[in-house]
């Protein structure tokens, strides 16, 4: 019952919260640049507008691939909010991303194609850290079960600061912020047209936007898990982390994929790996 409630809550509220968060993101970004910025609900206007546009496609498959992408993203989040296995969450996330990549590939357009390649590279950069986070939770909390991880008395951050840092590092990649927004970017950022999403238009693109809201909330939920025993502090800290990501986004230029891959692997190995070893020895 509790699990169903969690899933229900996620499916309904995650896009709302994600959309508002994105709106706030744009306002904060604008203020940092000395501008006024759009209304808070701007992300919703964008998506609703996209649904009113013509459904322009290159072939009849890629829209459906994106639909699958969204579904698996929701599944991934649902597993998390149902309090199930952390590893399953990561695996479902990989499947979702795979669908996104396939959608971009299927258009057979040069810009999408480069975006797809880069998305794959980003997945390559991120996945180890996500799995290591899961293993870290296991060693620190004694289970992969998120229900169990949440119920541990002390915040897990004290046992796994290194892993936390590593996760925040790859978070930048996952929520598509500079300097790691290689495959596609947001708002007014541009490079190689729009990367991965170049060929998606209208309602199809709206799916990507909605998926992005879900993804943001999912990623911030990962952050929250580190502070799960103090829910209020956890939520505040997750928002703080998001704020820090915005600062990073606005103060950094986009880097090359080589740097993205190497640096995130090095961070994963150094912070994640060493933290794992310490947890293992302490056990």
């Amino acid at each position: 019952m509790k699990a169903l409630l969690g899933i229900f809550g996620f499916v309904i509220f995650a896009p709302l919260a994600g959309g508002i968060l994105c709106g706030l993101d744009r306002i904060v970004t604008a203020r940092m640049q000395g501008r006024y910025g759009p209304p808070v609900l701007q992300s919703f206007y964008d998506v609703l507008k996209l649904f009113q546009k013509q459904n322009l496609v290159v072939n009849r498959f890629h829209g459906y691939f994106l639909f699958c992408f969204l579904i698996f993203l929701i599944i991934s989040g649902s597993i998390l909010y149902a309090g199930d296995d952390f590893l399953m969450v990561v695996f479902a996330l990989t499947v979702a991303d795979m669908f996104l990549v396939m959608a971009a590939y299927s258009t057979n357009s040069p810009y999408s194609f480069i975006g797809a390649q880069r998305e794959l590279l980003q997945m390559l950069a991120v996945e180890p850290m996500l799995l290591i986070t899961g293993i870290g939770f296991y060693l620190a909390a004694g289970s992969f079960d998120i229900g169990h991880i949440v119920s541990v008395g002390k915040p897990l951050i004290f046992k796994m600061p290194g892993i936390f840092f590593g996760l925040v590092y790859v978070l930048t990649i996952k929520i598509r912020k500079s300097p790691f927004d290689l495959s596609t970017s947001h708002h007014a950022h541009q490079e190689i047209v729009k990367g991965l999403t170049t060929e998606f238009a209208g309602p199809t693109l709206a799916l990507v936007e909605i998926a992005h809201w879900y993804e943001t909330i999912l990623m911030l939920s990962f952050v929250f898990l580190f502070f799960a025993s103090q829910p209020v502090v956890g939520i505040l800290l997750a928002i703080l982390i998001y704020f820090i990501e915005i600062i990073i986004d606005n103060t950094n230029a986009r880097v090359k994929w080589q740097f993205t891959l190497k640096s995130s692997w090095i961070v994963t190995l150094l912070f994640g790996g060493i933290n794992l070893f310490i947890l293992y020895i302490l056990k």
């Binding site: 501008r35 759009p38 209304p39 701007q42 507008k49 007014a188 729009k194 170049t198 238009a201 693109l205």
Partner: peptide
Amino acid sequence: CLTPMYDVERFGIINIGNPKHAD
């Protein structure tokens, strides 16, 4: 128009650079 002086993003306007996304 995009600069802080005029800031068209107030109206939700984004310079998108991609015909498929643009209105």
